[in-house]
Structures are given as C-alpha cells and as structure tokens.
C-alpha cells in the first residue's frame, strides 16, 4: 500500500511537473544530476559548473524549490516597505532582507539548474497544506497591504513578515533534519538563525498595545 501510494505520488509529480523528487522517489541520495528539463541548457554547459558537487537527496531539492518560491513571496512583501512604511528602522530592515534574499534566491536557482531540476515549487505548496492551511502570503494579501500606509501598514506588514519568516525557519529545519548536501544544509542553518533574529527584531518593532 505504501509503495502504491508512493508510486502514485511520483507519477503525479511527473505529470504536473511540480516539485520533482529524485529518480526513485525513495529519499535515497543520488549523486548524478537528473536529465535537465526541456529547454534547459544541455548537461555539461555552464550551469553545471555552478551546482555544488556531492550527493543530494529529495529533501535538498524540495527545500531549495520551496525556498525559491517562498523568497519570491517574501521579496514582493518587503518591496512594499520603502513606499508605505514610515519608520526608518523598518525600511532599513526591509531593504537588507530584499538584497540578501535576492542573492540567496539566485544561488538556490543556480544550484537547482545545475542539478537539472525546476527552480521553483507550486506557489500553493506549503508546510501546512496537509491540514487545510493556506499559505499566508498570496497576491490578494499583497494587494490589500499595498493599499494601506502608516501605522496600519507597519503593523500588518510586520505580522505578515514575521509569519512568513517563521515558515522559512520551519522549511530550513526540515532541511537540516533530513537533507544531506553540506552546502544546502549550511544555507538552511543560516536561514534558520538569520530569520529567527529578524523575527526577534520585528517583534520589538510592533506597537506594544496593538
């Protein structure tokens, strides 16, 4: 039954072109990159050089794909701050998150491309979907937020970004627990500690009495 279920899952992933696991879908580490998706640069060309060497497993791939997608949502959020926030400390933090996450996203895409994997996950995928949770950040939320300003914007912005970074920490801990690739695990460790510190800072920026 378990095997049947796994086969179905893998088949579904292949059909939908989503977050593809390793060839067997078994979680066994694989050393060689899978064939690149159609339209990707042929194996042996430049991108392969950017992939970190060494064995990687399904969790490494899944983590990178979901984090690339998560970063996209986070970047859309922090880019609202320069126009709409008032406090300088909040704008400074948002701008620093913008440049660091953009840089991380570039690195993660390069690694995935080098491994011949798609460079993002389905945007609706999130760690809470299994029990009915929707991701907190979507186009509707961003649109609503982009219509507010001042203190109301700052309070909503901080609560959204804190929640978003909590989710990033959860993904990172999945990788440090089950991923095998040293560089990916190290990236996850840094994401865990840096987002935890950002959450600490942002909680301190919230108005105390709501």
């Amino acid at each position: 039954m378990n095997r049947f279920r796994r086969t179905l899952i893998v088949a579904t992933l292949v059909l939908l072109g989503g977050c593809a696991p390793g060839p067997a879908g078994t979680g066994v580490p694989v050393a060689a990159p899978a064939p690149p998706p159609p339209g990707a640069t042929p194996t042996g060309a430049a991108p392969a050089a950017t992939a970190p060497s060494g064995e990687f497993n399904d969790t490494d791939v899944m983590f990178l794909q979901m984090m690339v997608t998560s970063h996209g949502q986070g970047l859309a959020l922090v880019r609202l701050a320069p126009e709409r926030a008032e406090r300088e400390e909040l704008k400074i933090l948002a701008a620093a998150i913008d440049v660091t996450q953009e840089s991380e996203q570039r690195t993660m895409r390069d690694w995935l491309t080098g491994w011949g994997r798609t460079t993002s996950a389905d945007p609706d995928a999130n760690v809470h979907a299994e029990h009915g949770g929707l991701p907190v950040l979507g186009p509707a939320q961003l649109t609503a937020l982009s219509k507010s300003s001042g203190t109301a914007f700052e309070t909503d912005f901080l609560n959204l970004l804190i929640g978003h970074q909590h989710s990033a920490v959860e993904l990172a801990r999945m990788e440090t627990k089950s991923g095998v690739h040293p560089e990916v695990r190290e990236l996850a460790r840094r994401i865990d500690v840096s987002r935890t510190a950002q959450i600490d800072q942002m909680l301190g920026m919230l108005p105390k009495a709501g």
Binding site: T12, L13, L16, G18, D58, M62, A121, D124, A129, M174
Partner: peptide, 12 residues
Amino acid sequence: VATVLSALLVAP
C-alpha cells in the same frame, strides 16, 4: 499538487 508536496514533507 499541494497535497502531494505536503505528503512528501510530512515524512521528514
């Protein structure tokens, strides 16, 4: 797809 992804995620 979301369920599939989460099913894979729940394991680790």
